[in-house]
Design a protein around this nucleic acid. Structure first.
Length: 227
DNA sequence: AGAGTCAAGCTGACCA
DNA sequence: TGGTCAGCTTGACTCT
């Protein structure tokens, strides 16, 4: 796409030599379309021909100054823009307020930071991407934990099912709710859905000390699941 | 040396 | 149709 030029703003702010003849994103210099353009001729380049740098914050010298002079790399000159601490701080601050910018806000911020609007725009795009990535990572962690606990619960329930199945092999001992005496097998019935055994009368059976406090003897009301 | 970070380029989708 | 966005990629630079 090539969002740059038509604003005219760039032309007024542009580094001499960039005066973007093409409207394309890369400030001139792209070689035909394969994306592998030798980029930049970028905004970081000190003005060719020794003119005054229009974007001092992005200049190599400034960057090196801020990092305590040439950093670890010795006297070689960086081609990459590094935003100053102050620029980053201001950008972060406005990002906190708004994750997107209106064109007006962008212009204003760019002016304030002595950057081109395009740079502000790119910064916000990248910042949103980073935020989203971080969020995705957090969600991933959360889902992993959920998976762990659900797996554990699944195992537990499987064990319980096995136990219940094992109990069913032997003739079940179900006590009459009235006499508390063992009921004959002929007096028992089983819920077809959950295979729970109960007295044929519909009265809650007392096979195990389960609380039998429900209208439906097969499916007593459960506490609602809370996740 | 290789991994990580980050500004910036490219592309396609979307919308007014 | 132009502007903006997300997603992906590149390349300079830093860190371990």
């Amino acid at each position: 796409m090539g969002s740059t030029s038509p604003s005219g703003l760039e032309l007024t702010m542009a580094v001499p030599g960039l005066s973007s003849s093409s409207g394309s994103e890369g400030f001139g210099c792209t070689n035909n379309g394969n994306g592998n353009n030798m980029r930049d001729l970028d905004m970081n380049q000190p003005a060719s021909g020794g003119e005054e740098e229009e974007f001092p914050m992005g200049s190599v010298e400034e960057v090196e100054d801020e990092r305590g002079g040439a950093g670890a790399g010795g006297p070689h000159r960086s081609k990459k823009l590094r935003l100053s601490k102050e620029q980053s701080r201001l950008l972060e601050e406005s990002f906190r307020l708004n994750h997107t910018l209106t064109p007006k806000q962008k212009e204003a911020l760019a002016g304030k930071l002595q950057l081109r609007p395009r740079q502000v725009e790119v910064w916000f795009q990248n910042r949103r991407a980073r935020t989203k990535l971080k969020q995705t990572e957090l969600e991933c962690e959360y889902l992993k934990r959920c998976f762990g606990s659900l797996t554990e619960e699944n195992r537990r329930l499987q064990r319980e099912v096995e136990e219940l199945r094992a109990m069913r092999v032997a003739p079940p001992t179900v006590l009459s709710p009235h006499t508390r005496q063992p009921l004959p097998a002929s007096a028992l019935t089983m819920c077809p859905r959950c295979e729970r055994i109960t007295a044929a009368t519909g009265a809650p059976a007392a096979r195990t000390p389960r609380p039998a406090a429900a209208a439906n003897p097969f499916h007593p009301r459960r506490p609602s699941a809370a996740f």
